[in-house]
Computed example of a mutant assay.
Amino acid sequence: MDATQTAVFREQLLAQQRAVLAQLAAQRGGTIGRAEAAAEHFGRPEDSRAQVATDRELEFALDAHETEQLAAIDAALSRIAADTYGECTDCGADIAIGRLQVAPEASRCLACQDSVEHQRRPG
């Protein structure tokens, strides 16, 4: 991958990173943590205990997803800095440009990603 292509992907990754961080800040109402936000949002006396528990679980699931997104973006930016961006972290093959255009944080080629997902499926 040439330096021009890498620079474009770096900008995309930085934009994604800013968007996720802004989304987190907006959802949390500033700098408070997800647990505190959940307590504030879902601690109303009219809510049932089951509703509160469900809403908190959703908050924590969203937090986990956003944390994974940020980790993937950070890892991709590290691969750019190490000049290994665009190489599959499993097999070393080039990741298709089309895949990186859709998911610039991708760390695996399609074959390796399919293999990982297949292994994660139950049964």
Rank of each mutant, 00 (worst) to 15 (best):
A3H: 12
Q5P: 02
Q5G: 08
Q5N: 08
T6M: 13
V8K: 12
F9I: 05
F9H: 13
R10V: 05
E11Q: 13
E11D: 14
Q12M: 11
Q16P: 02
Q17W: 06
R18F: 05
R18K: 14
R18D: 12
A19G: 07
Q23V: 01
Q23D: 12
L24H: 08
L24Y: 05
A26I: 07
A26S: 13
Q27E: 15
R28Q: 15
R28T: 11
G29H: 07
G29Q: 08
T31W: 01
T31M: 06
G33P: 11
R34T: 15
A35N: 07
E36V: 11
A37Y: 01
A37D: 05
A38K: 08
A39K: 10
A39G: 10
F42Q: 00
F42M: 00
F42P: 01
F42H: 14
G43P: 03
G43K: 01
R44F: 04
D47W: 11
R49H: 09
A50T: 08
Q51T: 13
Q51E: 12
V52A: 13
V52L: 02
V52S: 09
A53M: 07
A53Y: 03
A53T: 10
T54M: 14
T54D: 11
D55Q: 15
D55E: 15
D55N: 15
L58A: 12
F60Q: 14
A61C: 02
A61I: 03
L62T: 11
D63H: 10
D63M: 06
D63K: 02
A64H: 08
H65S: 12
E66R: 15
T67M: 06
E68T: 10
Q69A: 12
A71Q: 10
A71F: 03
D74S: 11
A76Q: 07
A76T: 01
S78K: 13
D83T: 11
T84P: 01
T84R: 02
Y85N: 00
G86S: 03
G86Q: 05
G86M: 04
T89R: 14
D90N: 08
C91S: 05
C91H: 03
G92K: 08
A93G: 04
I95C: 00
I95T: 01
G98V: 08
Q101E: 15
V102T: 10
V102A: 14
A103R: 15
P104R: 02
E105C: 00
A106I: 04
A106R: 04
C109N: 02
L110I: 15
A111S: 13
A111I: 08
C112E: 01
Q113I: 01
D114I: 09
D114S: 12
D114G: 02
S115I: 05
V116D: 02
E117Y: 04
Q119E: 14
P122D: 15
G123M: 02
